[in-house]
Simulated scan of single mutants.
Amino acid sequence: MIPDNHPRYRSLVARERIADAVRSGIVVVEGASAHGRGEAFDYLLCEKTSESALLAEKTAAAYLMAADRAIISVNGNTAALAADEIRELAEASGAAVEVNLFHRTDERMAAITAHLKAAGVTVLEGTPERLLPLSHDRALCLRDGIGTADVVLVPLEDGDRCEALVAMGKTVITIDLNPLSRTAQTATVTIVDELTRALPNITRACRDMTPETGNQLVAAHDNTALLRAALRQIQETLADALD
């Protein structure tokens, strides 16, 4: 039992969810280590949403709302940590949800899909095809999902698929606590924030979005500036710690 007044409550709850998901087969062991890496970066971001991250979240909402076919791509960690948040974002944005995995087995696909459905998420299902130019199983996706999407939200993404999606002409939105990762550096819109803080912010922005505001956000978008702002925040955190 984690007391809700513990100063690390949110972080400890997330760790427990990941551990439970490893035991149930939703998350692979490698996913647990990836979560820890992200948590380390969140320390450097003071475990809060920065102004630049909030701007990125609003910009992500603008792209989602303007999309012809938006897809939220979900892996095991995302499902374990944020199934409810995924449902709410899908409802607010009109985006569809597709499960896409690097460590892919039929059993994991079924377990993650069932977990999302239990949270009320409508999940695209069908026969996957090797539609992305990758040599591993993230290449497998649905033609009426990621295959034909113009905007793809890829939280907790790995870099080579992000690069492949961008090369295919898709707008890629990622949530990545490491502003130096290949994913963060490649995506169209990089949100340097923790998953369960970022998703509700995007959802709220989708609900409040007007076409005029959306057009302004997209026109003004500068992903390099967002990444630099995140790096400056990390620098400031380290400088303050040394003072």
Score class of each variant (00 low, 15 high):
T186D: 07
R104P: 00
Y63W: 12
A21L: 02
E129V: 02
A119W: 11
G214C: 02
M109W: 10
A53K: 01
Y9P: 06
C162K: 05
L180D: 13
A119R: 13
A19I: 13
L242D: 12
P128I: 00
V28L: 13
F41T: 02
I202M: 05
I175T: 09
A61C: 06
L195S: 03
R17E: 12
E194N: 12
A230L: 09
A167M: 11
P155W: 05
G126N: 05
V13H: 01
L89T: 00
G25E: 03
R204E: 14
A219H: 09
G145Y: 03
E194Y: 11
L140H: 05
R108S: 11
P3D: 11
E91R: 14
H136V: 02
L231R: 15
A67W: 00
L81I: 04
E157C: 08
Q233K: 14
G147K: 00
L81G: 08
P211L: 08
I2P: 10
T186E: 12
L101T: 11
A32D: 12
E57C: 13
T174D: 12
G147A: 01
V121C: 07
L124E: 04
T78H: 02
G159S: 15
P200N: 04
S24H: 09
L64F: 06
L12M: 14
D4S: 10
V172S: 02
L89E: 00
A239G: 07
L226V: 14
F102E: 06
A95M: 01
D176S: 08
G38F: 09
N75Y: 08
R232T: 09
T183E: 07
A114G: 07
T127F: 09
R182Y: 07
R228L: 11
C46N: 15
V97M: 06
L101H: 03
T113Y: 11
P3A: 14
I86R: 03
G38T: 06
I2S: 06
L45M: 14
L180C: 10
G94T: 07
V172E: 01
M168Y: 00
L81A: 04
D68K: 14
N201K: 12
E16C: 11
C46D: 14
C141K: 00
T188Q: 00
C162V: 15
A53R: 01
G25W: 11
S181D: 04
L242W: 11
L242S: 10
A205G: 06
H6T: 03
V152I: 12
P179V: 05
A66H: 13
D160G: 04
T183G: 15
A62Y: 04
V29C: 04
S181T: 03
I146V: 15
S135E: 15
D20T: 08
T196F: 03
G31I: 05
R197M: 11
V154I: 13
M1Y: 12
R197I: 01
E129N: 03
T174H: 00
T237A: 10
L156M: 12
G36V: 07
N178G: 08
D84H: 07
A92T: 10
G120L: 11
P3G: 13
P133F: 04
A80F: 06
Y9V: 03
